[in-house]
């Protein structure tokens, strides 16, 4: 009854804007749900902080105590290796306790509602939820209904957003290019189903990137993409035109389901018309970098020689993934601590 009343009251409140939901009154990051509507200054702050966490191989990794005594719960309703592992590693390097909830054996698969799952986990005094879910808006939903001292980090929701991926991509670009303003960036492949592409487009626009191009067959270009910040003249269905003189090429993963949904005829044809080959790479600027959020389908969207070539920064992206997630976790926990102090005063 009490809970119903509470929810009733909350249902009455008009929806909060994601921007106001992610930030506290001091405009500090409290949740990380989407890149959209964040300020360029805040994005720079995330990138700067991440830069300080970037580690070198074959050294003893520095352990920070920023999240000591805090508990991070990985809630992955969708499979993931890379993202989950990097979140886990990031939390451990910040001295937090990390748990992975195995959804396949959890109560959710026995019919418990998502809200009940969250309430139960909340009762175990979790500080950060890292959420991946197949439905858009799930991270927003959890952030809206969980206790105020908990921070929610979106590790990918439906086709909506994957903000930490976009930020690690921005970090990678910044490490290789002096400034975003003069850059021409091309995103190639399944834009329609890609939360990564959406978050990248938002991040690139916020950071004032010169030109954002998308390259895909018409079946994989979402309707109204212009409203996200891609100019109509920068939507290409011919990859050779689209790659001309670009500084950054971001390839997206193509999933097998797309063939069954009649969006494409075959992987072979996709490779023939949209695969990134050495020859096509020559159309871009000579110092162009090649990125891929992984896992890559070699021979479908990218040639092995390009993926492993000297212009590829794909593995830098993974390294940066840990640093970005450390930066985000430390920022949201800092915000929470300041909130607590404010309440105490």
């Amino acid at each position: 009854m009490d809970r119903d009343h509470l929810i009733n009251q909350r249902l009455n409140v008009p929806d909060e804007l994601p921007s106001t939901m992610q930030l506290n009154a001091q405009r500090q990051l409290k949740h990380f749900l989407t890149v959209e509507t964040l300020s360029p200054l805040l994005l720079e702050e995330i990138l700067d902080r991440a830069e300080s966490f970037v580690t070198q191989p074959n050294r003893i990794q520095k352990q920070y105590s920023l999240l000591q005594g805090k508990t991070v719960m990985n809630l992955f309703f969708e499979n993931s290796t890379r993202t989950r592992t990097t979140f886990e590693l990031a939390a451990k390097r910040l001295s937090a306790d990390v748990f992975n909830l195995d959804i396949r054996t959890s109560a959710t698969s026995k019919g418990e509602s998502l809200l009940d799952t969250i309430r139960n986990l909340e009762a175990m005094n979790i500080d950060i939820f890292v959420v991946r879910h197949q439905h858009s808006g799930t991270a927003n939903f959890i952030a809206r209904y969980c206790a105020p001292h908990i921070s929610v980090l979106n590790a990918g929701d439906g086709h909506h957003a994957h903000p930490t991926q976009a930020m690690l991509d921005m970090l990678t670009i910044r490490q290789h290019k002096p400034s975003f303003q003069p850059l021409k960036v091309a995103i190639v492949g399944d834009i329609l189903h890609s939360r990564v592409a959406r978050s990248q487009i938002h991040a690139l626009s916020i950071l004032a990137t010169g030109e954002i191009r998308v390259i895909a067959p018409k079946t994989l270009i979402p309707i109204g993409i212009e409203d996200l910040g891609v100019r109509p003249e920068n939507i290409y269905s011919d990859i050779d035109q689209g790659l001309k003189d670009v500084d950054v090429i971001i390839m997206l993963r193509l999933q097998k389901e797309r063939m069954q949904a009649a969006l494409l005829p075959s992987e072979q044809e996709f490779y023939k018309f949209y695969g990134l080959t050495e020859e096509r790479l020559k159309l871009a600027k000579p110092d162009a970098i090649v990125m891929h959020p992984g896992p890559a389908n070699r021979g479908v969207e990218i040639d092995s020689r390009v993926a492993d070539g000297k212009q590829s920064v794909i593995l830098n992206q993974v390294t940066n993934g840990v640093a970005i997630r450390m930066a985000i976790m430390s920022m949201v926990m800092q915000t929470q601590q300041q909130e607590q102090t404010r309440i105490a005063i």
Partner: peptide, 10 residues
């Protein structure tokens, strides 16, 4: 099906 659907990824 419109630009809002594209933005929110539904």
């Amino acid at each position: 099906a419109g630009s809002v659907a594209t933005r929110v990824g539904l």
